[in-house]
Design a binder for these strands. Structure first.
Length: 498
DNA sequence: CGTGTAGCCCGTAAGGGCTACACGGTGCATTACT
């Protein structure tokens, strides 16, 4: 047994790596900046935890969600690794101070891109040895870094300030364009790409045209009534998710809940846990749902509207069938589908005149914080203000060209991504294979062995009846005896806490 | 762009029909207050 496998066994208790892990571990241990794709549930955290344990210094992990950080830290602690902590706004003043003091003793530090902007934190990190700089869910850099969470685009600078430690960016789904964007934004030069196919052969692809919104809702009820669950229904708006959940619950009596970013953290956590523990049949959600939800047996994912990007679509349908069993994804489309997404993009966009006006207004502003305040006073939303001030400071040194660049950045990027998604959805008008069409956006071709696979897509002879509930029980996921018992225990302890 | 709703008209009154208008996703952090 070589050293690596020996360490794998000793620290994690595994005798072999999962697909793709070993390459990634070796790559970073060789000191190579690496951008890697690994299927969700494929054991991403091991890819930095094992190298971290085998080298001196601290592993710094940038993570997009507070809940993900908490999960990871807890898992490490449960495995007996106490030198792990998360640093973010969920902490009190005292806790933050404590972590800053103990920083050099940590093996794994999880942090949000925003918290990593803190000068105090950076100064402390500069005095330490960072063995590995990790960006988890690295597609967020490209997906959010340009507008929604600009601090993601500043990770490259931070990395440099920390003396450019070995960097590892991890994601499950990214087009070639996104992978390049990630490397560029992180300022990686000689980067090694460890890529696998984004294809998930056990997820059948079905697209279906309906008349209008009423038609979608009607068809959806029909589908969830028949399909074997559990399932996810992705909706474009919070309201739609709530109404659908109500309607499904009423008409099918299946255990249905909704989930979106407007709910408080406790409710969100509860729904997520219930879904994972098979106490719900269906969750109607917005794009807020999914990251960090590692449920193996989701049998279908239905979209009642176009997602905004192909990558979002991939991520979302990819939540089905993690156990490798046959699952199905269904996109219900209707003529005016682009409308909502277009509008969502537009509400954050600014006109040329507004940009000119605001550009003048910011002339004397010194820092981003001041800029944001001033912009919000001018009536911009929080997101708009952050986006604009980010672009302002990025381009202002270019003088006259700056405004034009800001204008282009604000308008086009997201529009283009939506165009591609809408372009893909038009595939129903051809006779082509959906899977081939979809993979082409990732510069992939369908690997051999597909012929005769009727579970591929609508145009390859997919039969939705194969995904319907069979057997006597109208509801899936009847709890087994021990699960029920466990539940009573949990419920009891929950009551005590409340 | 599409949907839902508030408010108006009509005028036996009630409620149907119309127009105008608002609204729409993703999460970090931070603040001053009860």
């Amino acid at each position: 047994m070589d050293k690596l496998h020996e360490a794998l066994r000793r620290h994690f208790g595994y005798t072999s790596f999962k697909k793709g892990q070993e390459e990634i571990v070796k790559s970073v241990l060789e000191g190579q900046d690496t951008v890697a794709m690994l299927p969700t549930g494929g054991g991403k955290s091991l890819c930095y935890q094992l190298p971290g344990l085998l080298t001196d210094g601290t592993v710094l992990i940038v993570s997009p969600l507070l809940s993900l950080m908490e999960d990871q830290v807890q898992q490490l602690k449960m495995r007996g690794e106490k030198r792990a902590a998360a640093y973010n706004s969920a902490l009190t003043h005292q806790e933050k101070e404590y972590i800053l003091k103990q920083l050099h003793r940590l093996k794994f530090l999880y942090i949000s891109p925003e918290a990593l902007q803190s000068e105090q934190m950076v100064r402390r990190l500069q005095t330490m040895k960072i063995s590995l700089f990790v960006v988890d869910e690295a597609h967020c850099i490209s997906q959010w870094g340009h507008d929604f969470r600009p601090d993601y685009s500043k990770l490259g600078d931070i990395k440099k300030k920390l003396g450019s430690p070995v960097t590892l960016a991890l994601t499950a789904t990214a087009t070639e364009e996104t992978l390049k964007d990630i490397s560029r934004m992180l300022g990686l030069n000689e980067v090694r790409y460890l890529i696998h196919s984004v294809d998930r052969p056990n997820i059948a692809l079905h697209l279906e045209e309906v008349q209008d919104t009423a038609g979608k809702n009607e068809r959806l009820i029909e589908l969830v009534r028949k399909l074997q669950g559990p399932g996810l229904v992705y909706c474009p708006t919070r309201k739609w998710a709530e109404e659908l959940a109500g309607k499904i619950a009423e008409e099918t009596r299946m255990r249905t809940e909704f989930y979106h970013g407007g709910m408080d953290a406790g409710d969100r956590m509860l729904i997520q846990q219930q879904f994972i523990r098979n106490q719900l049949d269906i969750v109607c959600c917005t794009n807020a749902f999914g990251m960090g939800v590692d449920k193996p047996d989701v049998r279908y994912v239905i979209h009642v509207n176009l997602p905004q990007t192909i990558e979002a679509y991939m991520q979302e349908i990819g939540r089905a069938g993690r156990d490798g069993k046959q699952s199905v994804s269904i996109l219900l489309k209707a003529p005016g589908d682009r409308g909502i997404q277009e509008q969502l993009i537009q509400t954050e966009a600014l006109t040329r005149q507004t940009i000119d006006f605001l550009y003048e207004k910011l002339a004397d502003v010194r820092d981003e914080r001041g800029a944001r305040e001033s912009l919000e006073q001018s009536g911009l939303t929080e997101t708009q203000a952050r986006h604009f001030s980010h672009l302002f400071f990025k381009f202002r040194h270019l003088g006259n060209k700056a405004r034009e660049l800001i204008y282009q950045e604000m308008d086009f990027r997201r529009q283009q991504k939506l165009n591609k998604m809408a372009g893909f959805a038009q595939i129903t008008e051809s006779k082509g294979c959906f899977r081939e069409g979809l993979l082409s956006y990732f510069n992939e071709t369908l690997s051999a062995g597909k012929s005769g696979n009727t579970a591929c897509c609508t145009h390859c002879g997919l039969n939705l009846e194969d995904y319907e509930t069979k057997g006597d029980h109208p509801f899936m996921n009847q709890l087994t005896a021990w699960e029920e018992e466990l539940d009573t225990i949990f419920a009891a302890s929950r009551d005590r806490i409340c």
